[in-house]
Design a protein around this nucleic acid. Structure first.
Lengths: 147, 147
DNA sequence: TTGTGTGCAAAATCTTTGCACTTCG
DNA sequence: CGAAGTGCAAAGATTTTGCACACAA
């Protein structure tokens, strides 16, 4: 997973400014175990930079997502959450009980993609893949308690 | 793909009423090649039942999704669209140019799921998978024209 | 006939935009 | 200093809710 330092360097490398507000959003994402909506990210970021506004949370999450430093989480109930993202091709594994998000890599869908491509005639470019289940902590906890 | 008749029977079988508004939304979904947002579904459904209101489109799509007769489409720009869904475990293949949605089946992720489960300790219950690419029609059309 | 389902209007949310002020580089 | 970035307030969308009426069963 990227560190705050990595992200700061990445921003600077793109000619983007490293502001307090952006740092605060980045920290919120790194600290959170689960996905954050813009409103939640704003709230968490305020711990680091109280003056941050909701609009900046929206803009910063969108920016981080474009840079590949954050990723939208597609849950059954919507896709308004963002989570930190490592460099490279990764996917998310989400705990349906506590919301924790863990990354994994090494999805090998090329065989599937080839089969579907030849069956449908589509040229397949990319995919969305997310696994959902129950994390070890929640398994050890009798049904339903939150982390 | 389910026919209108199948869907009607499914509704009736659940003790739900088969109203004109519901039929109109079902037809809108079946006629559309791509995913429909509630607003779009409402507009299309009006061709069959002009008095339908937007609220009913929301409620009906949600209802159909719960019955497994419709499915949310998770695109990069959001997940506010619904598409028709066949019975059983299927996934969507989406044309990034014209928006056409095609179903496919036979995703075999069990090996991947087992590997990730043992690496992370999660008990994996389900997954979201969508492929994105360019459909045959759009491939034959010089960049960018819509169907 | 009866109660589920509907449409409408209004409320509640969520998201984007415009603009003057800050602040990073 | 200069321009990118921010916060605020307001506008725009989207989604939900309350309620009287309609209409499948």
């Amino acid at each position: 997973m990227s560190s705050e330092q990595d992200i700061v360097e990445r921003l600077a490398g793109c000619g983007l400014r490293v502001t307090r507000a952006r740092r605060a959003v980045v920290r919120a994402l790194l600290e959170s175990e689960g996905a954050l909506t813009p409103a939640q990210a704003c709230e968490c970021a305020r711990r680091h930079w109280p003056r941050i506004g909701l609009v900046t949370a929206y803009r910063t999450l969108e920016l981080l997502a474009q840079l590949g430093l954050a990723r939208r989480v597609h849950a059954a109930d919507g896709c308004h959450g963002y989570t930190r993202a490592s460099a490279g091709h990764h996917h998310n594994l989400i705990c349906q009980r506590c919301g924790r998000v863990v990354e994994f890599e090494g999805c090998d869908l090329s065989a599937l993609e080839q089969r579907v491509a030849s069956e449908t005639g589509f040229a397949i470019h990319t995919h969305i893949l997310e696994l959902t289940g129950v994390c070890p902590l929640c398994q050890n906890t009798d049904a339903g308690r939150r982390s």
